[in-house]
Amino acid sequence: MNVVADTVALDNINSHPIENAHSELQIVAPKDAINHYLKSLGTHRDFSIFNWKIVDLPVILYDKAEGFHIYRDIKAMEQGGTFTEVHHKIVHKDNIENGVTFDASITSLVVWQWIAMIVGIFFVLFAARKYKKSPLKAPKGIQNAVEALLLYLRNEIVYPNMPNRALANKYQHYFYALFIFILLMNLFGLLPGGHTATGAIGTTLGLALISLFVINITAIKQIGIGNYLKHLLGGAPWWLSFIMIPIEIISIFTKPFALTIRLFANMTAGHIVLLSLVGLIIMFQSLVMAPVSIAFSLFMMTLEVLVSVLQAYIFTILTAVFTNLAIGDHAEHSTAH
């Protein structure tokens, strides 16, 4: 009962923010605070860890009327006088309702992608250099980890799912890169101060688009354009073509779309649950909620580590499975699975 009484009392304080605000800190209602953090799950226009701003990021815009614009940072854009930012969206000053045609700014999520790339490249190149320097020595340290990971990916994802060894050896690098890149992006979101780049739908859409091209171009190269088009019939008799061909064409595009949504929704869902758990403290405004919130957050964080690895694995293996499906039975299958 005490908790309820405290909550009511604190709610009364916060519903009159101006009368009770003695400090310069702006007091907002708990719901607004949570909404604010929910919005900032997305992108920022500066790169900062916690509240420590490291660098402002450039703004790159394309507008139908104004053409390309590149500004050094968001302040330079405001001073430029043509565009302004309203609710995280860049709009034309004369037309505040609609956003600009195309906002290709470098955001904090892009920087986190770069960090994931650099870290991934560093680890793999480090291992590769060790092998070049002393190919006969037993691997140790990072080299061991990279070797174990790549061997696992090759034996469990690439070899069982590609129609033959030659093709598997040719395409294995794409799957390695995909797995390591997605895994690192997912895991960087769990570091304190980090952001999950895969929690933005643009990132996952880009990855899925690459997968779309890999799946279909591989299939066309392997079985020829004629067989690829024959595949669109799905093995049904010709008089069913008017219904089969649209379905098959849609299914070509739904596969990458499902990849996009799956990765994005899984990564975002975990963060929203974590935010809700932390939000419980802000909503109830009592010390009693803190241990509960921390316990559940710890559990969710552990689950997030599992989900990060699992989603990277699923994205990679589904790309491999879809490639195999698109090639179909035309290529020779290897017997060794």
Binding site: A258, R262, N266, L310, Y313, I314, I317, L318
Partner: peptide, 10 residues
């Protein structure tokens, strides 16, 4: 099983 679960979850 994991692949099928991924489809359902999707």
């Amino acid at each position: 099983m994991i692949i099928a679960a991924a489809f359902i979850e999707g």
